[in-house]
Each structure stands twice: as structure tokens, then as C-alpha cells.
């Protein structure tokens, strides 16, 4: 899922302070799971903001709504009838949701309420880790299901590098060496011969470096 983190409330206040009628828009997908921008977070933030502005003598109306997704036209259409009632939308969706909402409603400022961090997994409640960088050409089949692109700081394709010590990355003792993990897993699966194979040069053309990417599937387009 896309992992996001809450923005500090001071930053949110600074962003919305010039508006009087604000729609706080949550998203029921990834940001709900990582507890940054779901219905509950919308309720809490809206309540806090209402109290803050009231306490500071400013009349601000903050209304709440949480859409099923903010990255799909059909759900974003649900606010078409009401969007003109607001001076701004504070979206607690990921960067995709914020942009898609902004695309759709050209004249309404759409402001981000969370920091979008990475594609990751829930290790345990309150801890999320990065697992994918969406490089566009998955090599997990040959690396024991562990991604050196997202989990190795150097994105080394034939690792580990010289900085790997006792299974940890030279970044620090909290970071596992991705290649150590790959070796451990290949060993456990009895597939160490995979490790001996040199990885060919990775085609980075599918990565972000090639500019914004598009996936087009003619077979399912209507």
C-alpha cells in the first residue's frame, strides 16, 4: 500500500489559515490502513482544527467527508455537487489523491494534509517499512522475493557491497542488509545457484528517471 504520515498540525494550520470554508476529505484506502488519512483521522483533525480556530477567534467552517478512494473518477464525482460550497479542500489522501482531486476541480485549492512516504507494508501497528520503489521491472523472482532496489540503499544488483557487516547495512544497525536477507532466503529455499548468476544491467528506463509513467491496457479499455 501507499504509506503516508500525518503532517504536523502547525503545518496544516499554516496551509489552511486563509480559508473560511474547508472540506476535510479523507480516503478509505491505503491512508486508512496506515492511520494517516482515513475517516477517524479526518474526524480527529477536523475537531482539532475547529477548536484551534475557535480558540483563536477565527470563524472557520470545517466539514468532513471520506471517499472510498480519491484516485478514481467515480468516487471523486461524489463531491461534484458540493465542491463549490468550499474555499478549499484539505485532502488526507496520498499525493495521488490530492492531485487527482485537484485535476478534477480546477478552481478549488486542494491542499495536502499528509506526507506521502513510500510503498510499504505494516510490520506491526504503527510501524511501516518500504518494500517497493515501483521501478517498473520486477526482479523479485531472482532475488528470493526480497527487493534490492527498495531495500538496499545503493540499489546494488549483485550484492552485498563492502559495507555489509553482520547482516546489517552500513547505514546503521537498524537497517538490514538486503543482500544478506536475499542470501538467507535463497539458502533456505536451496536456491543458492541463483545467487551465483550475475544480474544483467537493469533497465532503468521503466523507473521514474524516465519521467512520469503510464500503464496502458488496451485489452480492458472501453
Amino acid at each position: 500500500m501507499i504509506v503516508a504520515d500525518k503532517k504536523p498540525i502547525d503545518e496544516v494550520i499554516e496551509t489552511i489559515k486563509d480559508y473560511e470554508k474547508i472540506l476535510l476529505l479523507g480516503c478509505n484506502e491505503c491512508v486508512t490502513v496506515c492511520e494517516a488519512g482515513g475517516k477517524k483521522e479526518v474526524e480527529v483533525l477536523a475537531s482539532a482544527l475547529r477548536m484551534y480556530f475557535l480558540n483563536n477567534g477565527k470563524k472557520v467552517s470545517i466539514e468532513e467527508k471520506t471517499l472510498e478512494r480519491q484516485c478514481d473518477h467515480e468516487y471523486l464525482e461524489e463531491i461534484r455537487d458540493v465542491i463549490d460550497q468550499y474555499d478549499a479542500v484539505l485532502s488526507l489522501a496520498c499525493g495521488v489523491g490530492v492531485q487527482f482531486t485537484a485535476d478534477k476541480y480546477l478552481s478549488t485549492p486542494v491542499l495536502p494534509g499528509v506526507n506521502t512516504c513510500f510503498l510499504g507494508a505494516t510490520e506491526k501497528r504503527g510501524v511501516w517499512t518500504e518494500r517497493c520503489q515501483a521501478c517498473g521491472k520486477c526482479i523479485l523472482a531472482s532475488t528470493g522475493g526480497i527487493c534490492p532496489v527498495s531495500r538496499c540503499a545503493k540499489r546494488v544488483m549483485n550484492g552485498p557491497c563492502g559495507g555489509s557487516t553482520n547482516g546489517k547495512c552500513e547505514l546503521g544497525p537498524d537497517t538490514d542488509c538486503a543482500w544478506q536477507l536475499i542470501i538467507n532466503r535463497l539458502e533456505a529455499m536451496g536456491k543458492m545457484d541463483e545467487y551465483e548468476k550475475l544480474s544483467p544491467l537493469k533497465d532503468w528506463a521503466t523507473d521514474r528517471a524516465g519521467g512520469p509513467r503510464t500503464v496502458e491496457r488496451e485489452d480492458i479499455q472501453s
Binding site: P8, I9, D10, V44, A48, L49, M51, Y52, N55
Partner: peptide
């Protein structure tokens, strides 16, 4: 914590 962040 939320209350403190808004000055209460």
C-alpha cells in the same frame, strides 16, 4: 497530545 498541539 492533540489538545496540546492546539494550545489546550
Amino acid at each position: 497530545e492533540v489538545l496540546e498541539s492546539i494550545g489546550i
